[in-house]
Simulated scan of single mutants.
Amino acid sequence: MRLTCVVNGEPREIDGVWEGESLLYVLRERMQLPGSKNACEQGECGSCSVYLDDVLVCSCLVAAGQVEGRTVTTVEGLAPTEDELHPIQAAFVEAGAVQCGFCTPGLIVATHDLLARNPSPSDAEIREALAGNLCRCTGYEKILDAVRSAAEA
């Protein structure tokens, strides 16, 4: 099938897509957008989180056929330009919340979603919003610091 959608603000048409393949596969392999990571493929880790029509989803659980005519925003699409970081991305770097980086894109998108809904979240609200994201490298404290810093910015 030919998949027609808007990705990171740009209309896209991708030929040869099987409607059952995952949005994650389409983003990474067909559109060359490697930001969303392929980890669990079961919606358990959050590494592949993206927006689908402004709703946070695990792209590994979304079939490509469900994306037809819709809008997708990835971690790459949050930055104002290719050469500039989004303030949330900058907060993660500055707080040292980026270690191996595998979970970081999903955490950044989930943080973006949280702060769009609640610009001054409590620690409990931050923990709840990020509960679907697993990090295997940290004790999460630097991630919480990054979210707090982004909320203040």
Rank of each mutant, 00 (worst) to 15 (best):
Met1Asn: 11
Arg2Ser: 10
Arg2Met: 05
Leu3Cys: 08
Cys5Gln: 08
Val6Asp: 15
Val6Phe: 06
Val7Trp: 06
Val7Arg: 01
Asn8Trp: 01
Gly9Arg: 04
Gly9Asn: 06
Gly9Ser: 06
Glu13Leu: 01
Glu13Asp: 07
Glu13His: 07
Asp15Cys: 00
Gly16Val: 01
Val17His: 06
Trp18Leu: 08
Gly20Thr: 15
Glu21Phe: 07
Ser22Leu: 04
Leu23Asp: 13
Leu24Thr: 12
Leu24His: 10
Leu24Glu: 15
Tyr25Ser: 13
Val26Met: 06
Val26Glu: 11
Val26Leu: 02
Leu27Trp: 13
Glu29Arg: 04
Gly35Glu: 06
Ser36Pro: 03
Asn38Thr: 01
Ala39Val: 09
Ala39Met: 04
Cys40Gly: 03
Cys40Leu: 00
Glu41Met: 02
Glu41Asp: 13
Glu41Arg: 02
Glu41Gly: 00
Gln42Ser: 03
Gly43Trp: 01
Gly43Cys: 02
Glu44Val: 07
Gly46Thr: 06
Ser49Val: 01
Ser49Met: 04
Val50Ile: 06
Val50Pro: 03
Tyr51Met: 05
Leu52Arg: 04
Leu52Tyr: 09
Leu52Val: 13
Asp53Ile: 05
Val55Ala: 15
Val55Gln: 15
Leu56Phe: 10
Cys58Val: 04
Cys58Arg: 12
Cys60Ala: 11
Leu61Tyr: 12
Val62Phe: 11
Val62Ile: 15
Ala63Tyr: 11
Ala64Ile: 08
Ala64Cys: 13
Gly65Lys: 09
Gln66His: 09
Glu68His: 04
Glu68Met: 03
Arg70Asn: 14
Thr71Ile: 11
Val72Lys: 06
Val72Ile: 14
Val72Ala: 07
Thr73Ile: 15
Val75Glu: 04
Gly77Lys: 01
Gly77Gln: 02
Glu82Val: 00
Glu82Cys: 00
Glu82Gln: 04
Glu82Arg: 05
Leu85Val: 10
His86Met: 07
Pro87Val: 05
Ile88Val: 11
Gln89Gly: 10
Gln89Thr: 09
Ala90Val: 00
Ala91Leu: 05
Phe92Glu: 13
Val93Asp: 15
Glu94Ala: 14
Ala95Val: 03
Ala95Asp: 10
Ala95Arg: 07
Gly96Pro: 07
Ala97Trp: 11
Ala97Lys: 05
Val98Pro: 09
Cys100Lys: 08
Gly101Ser: 12
Cys103Gly: 11
Thr104His: 07
Pro105Glu: 14
Gly106Phe: 02
Gly106Asn: 03
Leu107Arg: 00
Ile108Thr: 11
Val109Arg: 02
Ala110Leu: 00
Ala110Glu: 01
His112Lys: 11
His112Leu: 01
Leu115Asn: 09
Ala116Asn: 12
Ala116Thr: 13
Ala116Leu: 08
Arg117Asp: 14
Arg117Val: 03
Arg117Thr: 09
Pro121Cys: 02
Ser122Thr: 14
Asp123His: 00
Ala124Arg: 00
Ala124Phe: 00
Glu125Gln: 14
Glu125Asn: 02
Ile126Gly: 04
Arg127Pro: 08
Leu130His: 09
Leu130Tyr: 12
Ala131Gln: 06
Ala131Asp: 14
Ala131Phe: 01
Gly132Thr: 07
Asn133Met: 09
Cys135Phe: 10
Arg136Ser: 15
Cys137Ile: 09
Gly139Arg: 13
Gly139Lys: 11
Tyr140Asp: 15
Tyr140Ser: 13
Lys142Pro: 09
Asp145Tyr: 00
Val147Trp: 08
Arg148Asn: 11
Ala150Phe: 05
Ala150Gln: 04
Glu152Asn: 10
Glu152Phe: 00
